[in-house]
């Protein structure tokens, strides 16, 4: 089945099984910044942005992306360099496997309008990190929210 959507700002028409997972389809396009972690929508490593909202691509059937505006870390890295800079400057990462998901989630933070430190924590609670203890990630998101 042909599925059309915008991916990282460009129109896409893909001939895929609509029951495929968005995660697999995206990674199959060599966009491997989107990572598979828990596979059940809990850890956030596979976060993509769909119409401005954060979505778990591991539990998202690609058919449901029809006509949507989809962004992955690769596209957001070009579109939102200031967000990448916040994570780089604050070193909001160690092993890096959760990092793209953290950054995509942060990119979609406007969808819920979180701005206070407590709101940011609640919003980012869906993105797990096992390395950092979260302090540098929080600083990065807080800085990004503050300059926006």
């Amino acid at each position: 089945m042909k599925i059309t959507f915008n991916l990282n700002g460009k129109g896409m028409e893909l001939d895929v099984d609509p029951m495929s997972l968005a995660l697999d389809v995206i990674r199959g396009l060599s966009l491997t910044g989107t990572k598979e972690g828990c596979g059940v929508g809990v850890c956030g490593a596979c976060t993509i942005m769909v119409n401005g909202s954060p979505v778990s691509s591991c539990i998202c059937l690609v058919g449901t992306l029809s006509d949507k505006d989809v962004w992955t870390i690769e596209g957001l890295a070009e579109k939102m360099p200031e967000l990448i800079d916040s994570f780089v400057e604050k070193e909001g990462m160690q092993c890096g496997i959760c990092t793209p998901g953290q950054i995509v989630a942060a990119a979609a933070i406007d969808s819920v309008g979180a701005s206070s430190p407590e709101d940011i924590k609640k919003y980012m609670a869906g993105n797990l990190c096992r390395c950092t203890g979260y302090q540098t990630i929080l600083s990065a998101v807080e800085e990004y929210v503050a300059i926006n």
């Binding site: 966009l31 870390i73 890295a77 990448i84 994570f87 780089v88 990462m93 890096g96 990092t99």
Partner: peptide, 19 residues
């Protein structure tokens, strides 16, 4: 100075085994 792998990891460019 900042860690050497920061930019690659933040932009999704780093390649892991599954990639």
């Amino acid at each position: 100075e900042r860690r050497i792998d920061a930019v690659a990891k933040a932009t999704g460019a780093s390649k892991y085994t599954a990639d």
